[in-house]
């Protein structure tokens, strides 16, 4: 056990990162590295008219709350966010109910004592562990990272040949591709294999995962078909759970996405008209003078 423990500690330590650096330096010239090509998914929130599917966010919350929240917190979120526009838009009553099921530490009261009370919509999400040390101790050294910004905190590397890379950047810019994080999360959650491919030794306490860099992750496969009961008739598969909880994480990371994209369209149209007017006045002025 102590061996596993120290192994896990090692993974998250600076030394581990240094090892990563060394292996990266030693890889052959012009190799695109060990980057796994992460397949792109269809998301309602992609593109210029992107929006969140409320039903999907609600299912995603259900998955998060029932599975992931056991290990992962979302410290940037308040319960009230769950009823705000552009999110899952649960009813106020439902959010009150959700919040009240959480036990919040508050205080000090008039006697100087800390006390627990049930949560309200104005409270932040209650975290599974009081601090990282507690999480590491409970998880045998690996800290489950906070998920509030996870969908923006990961970006899959392109695995293209170097001379085609600029082309793919241009395509991404023109198509407005911003869903790399979500694509990665989906690939991660659906990337567990019952058996690692032949020849790969998975270290004790780690699990094989297709999408995770290095393929060995300390998180056991969190999902299984039929694990959670959906009320809206959506099929209860790992793929659907993963997709829904990923959409939920995207919303958690970018709760103003809908507002942003809607406003963007107005701004772009306004600026477009302004540019045309400026061009016409410039032309009218300059037509009279040789230049």
């Amino acid at each position: 056990m102590s061996k596993i423990l120290s192994m896990r500690n090692f993974r998250t330590s600076t030394l581990g990162a240094a090892l990563l650096l060394v292996t990266a330096y030693a890889s052959p010239s012009f190799a695109a590295g060990e980057a796994v090509e992460i397949p792109r998914q269809e998301w309602t929130f992609s593109g210029m008219t992107g929006y969140f599917d409320k039903a999907q966010l609600r299912r995603g919350y259900q998955v998060y709350q029932n599975v992931c929240a056991v290990c992962h917190g979302m410290r940037q979120l308040y319960y009230r966010n769950l009823s705000e526009p552009g999110g899952p838009e649960f009813s106020d009553a439902r959010v009150k109910d959700i919040a009240s099921q959480a036990q919040v530490t508050d205080g000090p009261d008039d006697n100087g004592e800390m006390f627990t009370r049930s949560g309200t919509p104005a409270d932040k999400f209650v975290l599974p562990y009081p601090n990282e040390k507690a999480a590491a101790a409970a998880m045998g050294g690996a800290v489950p990272p906070d998920l509030s910004l996870m969908a923006k905190a990961r970006a899959p590397a392109h695995a293209h040949a170097w001379y085609t890379e600029p082309y793919f950047w241009m395509v991404d810019i023109v198509t407005g591709y911003q869903e790399g994080g979500a694509d990665y999360l989906y690939a991660l959650l659906t990337g567990y294999a019952d058996e690692p491919p032949a020849g790969i030794d998975v270290l004790p306490g780690l699990y094989y995962n297709e999408a995770f860099p290095g393929h060995q992750i300390a998180m056991p496969s969190p999902l299984a078909d039929g694990f959670i009961t959906y009320e809206d008739g959506t099929e209860e598969t790992v793929a659907n759970y993963s997709k829904d909880v990923t959409a939920f994480m995207m919303w958690a990371a970018e709760p103003k996405l809908e507002e942003r994209k809607k406003m963007g369209l107005t701004v772009m149209i306004y600026l477009g008209i302004f540019a045309i007017l400026m061009y016409l006045s410039k032309r009218a002025l300059w037509r009279k003078v040789p230049h």
């Binding site: 407005g176 790399g180 994080g181 406003m263 963007g264 369209l265 006045s281 410039k282 002025l285």
Partner: peptide, 29 residues
């Protein structure tokens, strides 16, 4: 007038990034 037109076009590109790809030029880490 000419600079104004150029700023408007530049503003369009600027706005495209702000509203549609605000994190593209940054780093996920």
């Amino acid at each position: 007038a000419k600079d104004g037109f150029a700023i408007a076009v530049f503003g369009l590109i600027f706005a495209y990034f702000v509203f549609y790809m605000p994190n593209y030029l940054g780093h996920a880490d």
